[in-house]
Design a protein around this nucleic acid. Structure first.
Length: 207
DNA sequence: CGACCGATCGTCT
DNA sequence: GACGATCGGTCGA
């Protein structure tokens, strides 16, 4: 179990980083309660040129300011007044790239995650979808700006490798407002994993 | 299964 | 004052 270092996040290719985050383990340790999950779905938001991004056109506000900082920082914002959305900021100072973690497969602390989400049984809704991921892991908007080198919130490599053929790129979810950029294949999933959000995709693969 | 709908509030215009 | 990078429930086929 090795924490992803600063260099991992500071690279310039946000699509590559989003792809590489698949299979990595996101860990939180708040108030002594350790919870973790293996990332199975991510979405890249490619900064100022990306209409789907909060930083589109160089928009710089109180909320989006963290994205302009160095990579390796958490960007957490509130969506629909209810859901906390956990993102990883990437790239260098001044480049507002970010990656939304949309789904994970629960690993440690399942009892704690059930408690946090108010669910009774473990099923694939526990950490399916970005709102559920953050809720299960206990991540809130107050964690925006947190360094991912922290011991309370970080992403690690435990040696697990996702098979290359299992990674599929699709358009992002819920970004219809983004015009042509809505069609960009910036969402990465582990194909067939039950925790991946959205409808199931049928790849035409020869049997 | 798909379509629709309400919840709920910080952020930006 | 309008609007979400969503979710879970309900309703009808």
């Amino acid at each position: 179990m090795k924490k992803l270092d600063q260099h991992f996040y500071n690279r310039i290719d946000v699509l590559r980083i989003a792809r590489e985050l698949l299979g990595k383990v996101i860990v939180t340790s708040f108030e002594g309660q350790v919870t973790s999950g293996r990332i199975v779905e991510t979405e890249a938001y490619a900064g100022e040129g990306d209409r789907a991004s909060h930083a589109w056109g160089g928009r710089r506000t109180n909320r989006t300011e963290v994205m302009y900082g160095v990579g390796g920082i958490a960007y957490v914002y509130l969506c629909y007044g209810i859901h906390q959305m956990f993102n990883v900021v990437t790239n260098q100072l001044g480049i507002p790239h970010a990656i939304l973690v949309r789904a994970a497969e629960p690993l440690e602390g399942i009892d704690v995650m059930l408690q946090r989400t108010g669910k009774k049984q473990l099923d694939n809704t526990l950490t399916k979808g970005p709102g559920n991921v953050a809720k299960a892991l206990g991540i809130f908007t107050r964690h925006t700006g947190f360094s991912l080198q922290s011991d309370e919130l970080f992403i690690a490599d435990d040696g697990f490798k996702v098979k290359k053929n299992d990674i599929v790129a699709t358009p992002r979810i819920g970004v219809d407002y983004a015009g042509d950029d809505a069609a960009l294949p910036y969402r990465f999933i582990v194909h067939g994993n039950p925790y991946v959000s959205g409808k199931k995709i049928n790849l035409h693969r020869d049997n």
